[in-house]
Design a protein around this nucleic acid. Structure first.
Lengths: 218, 218
DNA sequence: CTTAATTTTTAGACAAAACTAAAAATTTGT
DNA sequence: ACAAATTTTTAGTTTTGTCTAAAAATTAAG
């Protein structure tokens, strides 16, 4: 399994997770930042290795074999991200590109021991679940921030509205993926909230809190 | 800098260290377990990138630029080996092939932080010095155990033959890095030795004692 | 339902890194 | 010194993964 093949597999896995439909060639090409012709070539190759099923013009779906391999790569990626943040003082926005490299290291013992070293973490620094050795991925019930009650805590795991305006607004409030969020106060009148994001205490509108996903941690 | 280029650079560096002469194409090919024609091709490419000087039939020598790059790879290799043994319970003989992969990860921050995490170790698990951030490699005055005289004492700092078979043999004798070793008796007849390793007194052959490095302490 | 727009595939090329087979240069033996 | 052995280089192919340009299939629009 080459590096490139693994990256395609991972991309296709993620796309299939989102739509639960056959993944169009164009979508793969876009995710891989390459051309559709290259994606076609790769899909053919992966198909010959029984890692996915593919019919021209009908999109592709991973076979169990392909899925299992993709999940292994994701497991490695998330364990490495955890190591980088927990032990090497990386911040959430720095880990990705290094983990993209580390996820391709081949050694079962390495990843088993790393998992042990980290204390068998359930989620990575972004709140995403870390698949176990058998490839099982825990479903994390992400909720919209608006649903949390006073005193509840969670980790920011994503946004619903991903418009530039909204993301810029979040940047300004210093809310980003992986941030710990605690509900200090909930205003019944207009559903606005006072929340604590890492160190800062801020107030956000109902509209905003409906567009932020969190994984509850307490 | 591709993975393959880095591996050639490292191989050439090691060969040049051994002989301090221009490295023949055949020697490179042998070390890389490839054919001479492939080595010629690569040497030409590295030469165009100013990483080495090369004149047909005269052997190659790394330029300062090439040497500096090779040393960085060696630094990464040895830091990772240290991490694997110290933190992930790898044994001497298991680290090499994983470190061969990890040494190619590109991230200055990663390696700086890893060094810090490990407490700025001076040597790797085989007793070889870890180059510092500027590329300086400490000279370690290590002797082969076979050179010690009766009553001499030393600390095990490495091995010459790092084959899995030899390392396993050492494990069985409970000889490992950092162990205190004292020469109890030297047999002139076959150059075998009776030595005391920490608590245990054992006998080892001439062949074995020639492959163990020690730092003399008395 | 036929034309237009879009998506996907094919065909042909290229670069990296390897190989085989053979030619050329160098070194060695007598 | 000159033939033989060795080392090194060329030349031509192969594989992986990419690209561009163009053809083919599918979908959408009037």
């Amino acid at each position: 399994m080459t590096l490139s093949e693994e990256n395609y597999l991972k991309a296709i896995f993620n796309l299939e997770e989102q739509t639960h439909k056959g993944v169009p060639t164009n979508a793969i090409a876009e995710m891989m930042e390459t051309k559709a012709s290259s994606a076609t070539d790769m899909v053919k190759r992966l198909s010959e290795k029984d890692l996915l099923k593919y019919k021209p013009y009908q999109g592709t779906r991973l076979t169990p074999k392909g899925k299992s391999h993709a999940v292994k790569v994701i497991r490695k990626h998330r364990l490495w991200e955890t190591f980088l943040v927990e032990n090497l003082d990386f911040t959430w926005d720095e880990v990705h590109e290094v983990a993209e490299q580390l996820e391709h290291i081949q050694s079962d013992k390495l990843i088993h021991q790393l998992d042990k070293f980290l204390g068998y973490p359930k989620t990575d620094p972004h709140g995403d679940p870390i698949p176990d050795e058998e490839g099982n991925i825990a479903k994390i019930e992400k909720k919209v921030l608006a649903e949390l009650q006073q005193e509840d805590e969670g980790v920011c795991v994503g946004v619903d509205d991903s418009s530039s305006a909204f993301l810029k607004y979040l940047d300004k409030l210093d809310i980003s993926l992986g941030n710990k969020i605690k509900v200090i106060e909930k205003e019944a009148f207009d559903n606005s909230m006072v929340i604590q994001v890492e160190e800062n205490t801020i107030s956000i509108s109902s509209l905003a809190s409906k567009n932020i996903y969190v994984r509850k941690t307490s």
